[in-house]
Simulated assay, not measured.
Amino acid sequence: MLIYSMGSDQSPSEAQSGSGGQDCRVKVTADILNVRAGPGMDAEIVGKFRQDAETEAHPVVRNGFRKIDESRWAADEFLEPVSGASCG
Rank of each mutant, 00 (worst) to 15 (best):
Y4N: 15
V28G: 03
G88A: 06
G40H: 00
G88E: 09
N63H: 11
P12S: 08
L33H: 14
F65K: 13
V26A: 06
K27H: 05
G20F: 12
K27S: 10
A85F: 08
S11L: 04
I3S: 14
G18D: 14
R25F: 11
S17E: 12
G18R: 10
I68W: 01
K27D: 04
R50G: 12
D42W: 02
P12V: 08
V46A: 02
P12F: 06
H58T: 03
Q16W: 04
A37S: 03
T55S: 04
R62S: 11
G84W: 07
E80L: 05
S13Y: 01
L2K: 14
S17D: 11
K48Q: 15
S8Y: 10
Q16N: 08
A53T: 06
E77I: 10
S86H: 12
G20Y: 10
P81Y: 13
V82G: 10
S13H: 02
C24R: 02
L33A: 14
K27Q: 15
M6D: 14
R72H: 07
E44G: 00
L79K: 13
A85W: 05
D76F: 04
A43W: 02
P81V: 10
G40A: 00
G88C: 03
P39I: 03
D31A: 15
H58R: 13
I32H: 10
F49S: 08
G88D: 13
W73S: 02
S86K: 14
P81F: 07
L79V: 13
G84R: 06
F65V: 05
V60F: 00
V26M: 12
Q16V: 12
A15I: 08
G38Y: 00
D69I: 00
A57S: 12
C24K: 02
K48Y: 15
V35D: 05
D52W: 08
Q51P: 03
L2N: 14
Y4F: 15
S86V: 09
A74K: 08
V46S: 04
I32Q: 14
G47I: 07
T55I: 05
P39C: 05
G38V: 00
A53Q: 05
I3N: 13
R62E: 11
M41L: 09
A74N: 09
V46L: 05
E44R: 06
V60G: 00
S86A: 11
H58G: 04
Q22N: 07
P59D: 10
S5C: 11
V35F: 04
D52I: 04
Q22E: 04
K27C: 11
Q10S: 09
D9F: 01
A85Y: 07
F65R: 13
C24N: 02
A30P: 09
M1N: 03
L33Q: 14
Q51H: 15
C87Y: 07
E77R: 15
T29V: 12
A15V: 09
V61M: 04
L79Y: 12
E54K: 15
